[in-house]
Amino acid sequence: MTTMPASPFVQVGVLTGRSLLGLRDPRMIVMNLLQPMIMLTLFSQVFRTMADAPGFPPGVEYLDYLMPAILVTTGAQAAVWAGGGLANDLKNGVLARFRTLPVTMVAVVAARSLFDLTRSALQLLTLLVAAMLLFGFHPPGGVLGSLGALVLALVVGTGLGAVFMALAAWVKNGELLQTIGMATMFPLMFASSAFVPVGNLPGWLRAVAVVNPLTYAVDAARGFALGAAAWPALAAALGVSSVLLVAGLGLAARGVRRP
């Protein structure tokens, strides 16, 4: 028989399910949660006096200021993993088989993206609950505002993840990708409004922070958490993320098709 291939939606579902089977490994879950917890602990303790610094918004707890940024930067770091995951898949023979099947490569990368979204959502949710229970994170924006920040972090992470997947499909080398990821994400995280107000950064760093999309993402997430929605930042963050998502997935699909 010549088969009638599954619809693209079924393909995405089946392929996402395939990746989720790998998530059953409890070691993976623990490792996924450990890193952001360490970040949260370190940053909240190391920088707690930051709220007394000049230029810091008055009357705002540093934890309330920090937590949305931790959510966004954790989401952004998960993006590097999405690329690493695809690079791993490319080494796995099964992707070579997908090229010979009536499977659309967009479904392959979209499934990878959905899987990472799921993983990232679990990670961020655990982080948020831990911050509330263990560190007393109760921002003015309340639970709803915190969840808004979380969703935005996921959107930003998914957009960036598509970019790293495109890169992975291009370089086809997981280690190189991790190196590129670290080399870009760390500067982007620090040259932004994530940990200190942009106004407190030295001049040249401030210039970088102003054009850094992560600044808008952090500002928008912070707006949700602090209960004062930052609409222009939100629009910028959503706009940039959607462009990255569409372009990234398209390029990644093309790259994956090429052996």
Binding site: A6, G17, G22, V94, R97, P102
Partner: peptide, 22 residues
Amino acid sequence: YTLVDEDLTGRQNLVMIARLLG
């Protein structure tokens, strides 16, 4: 080189491909 998913079981590999084929 074998084109199977080594992280899945034999059965999961076959079911996955069958599902992808509709």
